[in-house]
């Protein structure tokens, strides 16, 4: 077998090096974590024909097919053409040339999302259609970025641990006359959210400062007194990550922005990355680029030309020191064992 393989090149092509020399794992993108179930046949064909018959449900919602031999990669890439055309171009309107070469970049990772409001009773947004719009904005790109979209602040999508985490939130409206003071919303806000509701003078009052926009109140209201404003709103967290070195939860960068604003911000991502890296893409994820630029610069570049909606809130400053540490250095032996 060939022992002279450019694994960097294959990585960019979305093939990951195996511990078995000459074997690779293909990572097929599935933006928003959804594809038509018929593509399982495509996945199965690749795994059975060129892989080892296994499918790993990738950590970032990719179809990951291990055990592909180097010599078969060309055939796999050729076979992938139809899948990429349909999933990337037809579904997401991604601007790219699809050819026999397979995936052109690994930089922008598969955009993750929870199932969203097409199914979930808690969700506030259509995560899939948003994921597809995001895919168009960030793919293909050599700049590394990890994004995840959560339908509600429950954050099953772990938006908190991505370079850009997007959370669907809702502005709530209260119809005073429809309220029967049953306090279901008060109880639910207390048990599921941030305890911002209380009963006063036979009706509900809200401490708007701390409402996270989860819309649990609307979900449980028996009379429809609580409703979501039809306009969708988003919270954007930045700088979250896992990792060996500096794992940390993301922090809120933008709150109550509209989809238009959100898309404009993400649309600035590649330009921001190019600016920070002097147009030389490196294997560094978005969070690190924000750190390199510093929050003030990041904010300036990422909001360039963005017209914020009136409800929008922007973080004035972000402090990371209290949550960022070299992994494990705060854990010390306690029994005198070295």
């Amino acid at each position: 077998m060939n022992h002279d393989i450019d694994i960097k090149k294959l990585q960019v092509n979305c093939f990951r090096q195996s511990k078995v020399p000459g074997e690779f794992m293909l990572q097929m993108r599935a933006p928003g974590g959804v594809v038509q179930a018929k593509y399982l046949a495509v996945v199965q064909h690749i795994a059975d024909t060129w892989g080892n018959g296994q499918l790993h449900l990738g950590m970032r919602q990719t179809f990951s097919i291990p055990g592909i031999k180097y010599e078969n990669i060309e055939a796999v890439n050729e076979y992938l053409r139809g899948y990429i055309e349909e999933v990337e171009v037809a579904s997401c309107d991604v601007n790219m040339d699809v050819n026999e070469g397979g995936y052109p970049t690994i930089g922008a990772r598969n955009v993750m999302a929870c199932i969203g409001n097409s199914h979930c009773i808690k969700a506030n947004i259509d995560t899939l259609s948003l994921a597809r719009k995001m895919e168009k904005l960030v793919f293909p790109s050599h700049y590394h970025i990890k994004m995840s979209i959560a339908g509600c602040p429950n954050d099953c999508a772990k938006a908190t641990f991505n370079d850009f985490g997007i959370v669907g939130i809702a502005k709530m409206e209260y119809d005073y006359d429809r309220c029967i003071a049953c306090e279901r919303c008060v109880e639910t806000c207390a048990s599921h959210a941030t305890r911002v509701l209380s009963l006063e003078n036979g009706k509900i009052v809200k401490d708007v400062c701390c409402c996270v926009g989860c819309a649990e109140c609307a979900t449980v209201c028996p009379t429809g007194a609580w409703t979501r404003r039809p306009t969708k709103f988003y919270r954007v967290l930045i700088g979250g990550r896992s990792g060996k070195q500096y794992p940390r939860a993301g922090k809120i960068f933008l709150n109550w922005v509209t989809e238009e604003v959100l898309l404009a911000v993400i649309g600035n991502w590649q330009a921001f990355s190019a600016e920070v890296l002097n147009h030389q893409p490196r294997y560094l994820h978005g969070g690190h680029l924000i750190d390199m630029a510093g929050y003030e610069k990041f904010k300036e570049w990422i909001l360039k030309g963005v017209k914020l909606n009136p409800e929008a809130e922007v973080a004035e400053r972000l402090y990371w020191t209290e949550t960022e540490y070299r992994s494990n250095i705060h854990v010390k032996p306690v029994c005198g064992v070295d």
Binding site: I121, D126, A215, G224, T227, R228, P230
Partner: peptide, 15 residues
């Protein structure tokens, strides 16, 4: 019809 005012996101309320 009260569009998108239903109990769940993107559902309508008819009242």
């Amino acid at each position: 019809r009260f569009e998108k005012r239903g109990r769940y996101s993107d559902t309508d309320l008819v009242r």
